[in-house]
Write a protein that binds this DNA or RNA. Structure first.
Length: 229
DNA sequence: CCCCAGGGAATTC
DNA sequence: GAATTCCATGGG
């Protein structure tokens, strides 16, 4: 069976630095490409406006494709509502309209209010605190901690669990925390590695390891139990 | 345990 | 071209 380090190498060789987490309002600015992806690893602490955008988009992308999130971010940017202060002050009814494309907009508008209020009350959020906020589960909390605050955490999202289970690295349909714990137990544990790995897994899952896998040309095919499909 | 909030792209029928 | 699927979190 392939080990996690070798899989990372294969993905890195194929895709290079993935540039996650995209920051919408910095498109085509210094350090970002035309889609808002980073050109190189950022220095921490991040500027506050980048932290705010990561938090907002982490909530918006729950159970939702990134293309739908981008439309909502575009609307929020146009309305000047991409900071936690603006989210806290903005009328709830407007917020709901602006993020409509991200789905579940009634709930997500409430979630944005709650997480922005929480973050304005603490200096640096911890995982327990984030999880105590209504609307923030383990995946959203880890995304915020990994990308906004450079805490070394594995994002065991749907892509990662699907890819890892097909490679035999995780059992099928393992729940989030159990999957994250397994990976934490066998990886180096620096934030750069976890950020890159998450971005690489997303790129790989979208190109090859889809729901219906495209095994032709897959760079992990020699190591995959599904080889031959 | 189940269903629902909810949109839009991808996929399947 | 219509129907189904996907996706995080929490409420009922």
């Amino acid at each position: 069976m392939i080990d996690v380090y070798r899989f990372y190498e294969i993905l890195w060789d194929r895709y290079g630095y993935p540039g996650w987490w995209p920051v919408y309002s910095k498109k085509s600015l210094e350090g970002f490409d035309s889609a808002g992806y980073r050109l190189y690893l950022p220095a921490y602490p991040l500027p506050q406006d980048e932290i705010d955008q990561i938090v907002i988009s982490a909530v918006l992308t729950q159970n939702t494709a990134w293309t739908n999130v981008e439309k909502a971010l575009s609307e929020l940017s146009y309305k000047g509502c991409l900071t936690k202060e603006a989210v806290m002050q903005g009328p709830l009814s407007d917020l709901k309209m602006w993020i409509r494309s991200s789905g579940c907009y009634n709930q997500k508008a409430e979630k944005l209010k709650k997480i922005c209020n929480y973050l304005s009350c603490v200096d640096t959020p911890d995982r327990k605190g984030l999880l105590s906020v209504w609307g923030i589960g383990p995946e959203t909390a880890d995304s915020i901690l990994l990308y906004a605050y450079a805490e070394p955490l594995f994002i065991a999202d749907a892509y990662a669990r699907r890819v890892f289970s097909r490679l035999g690295l995780l059992p099928l349909r393992m729940e989030y925390q159990a999957a994250a714990d397994v990976v934490h137990g066998c990886t180096p544990g620096d934030w750069e590695w976890y950020q890159n790995f998450h971005g690489l897994i997303v790129a790989f899952a979208k190109e090859f390891c889809k729901k219906k896998p495209l095994c032709s040309g897959c760079p992990a095919r020699p190591y995959c139990s599904r080889a031959g499909l």
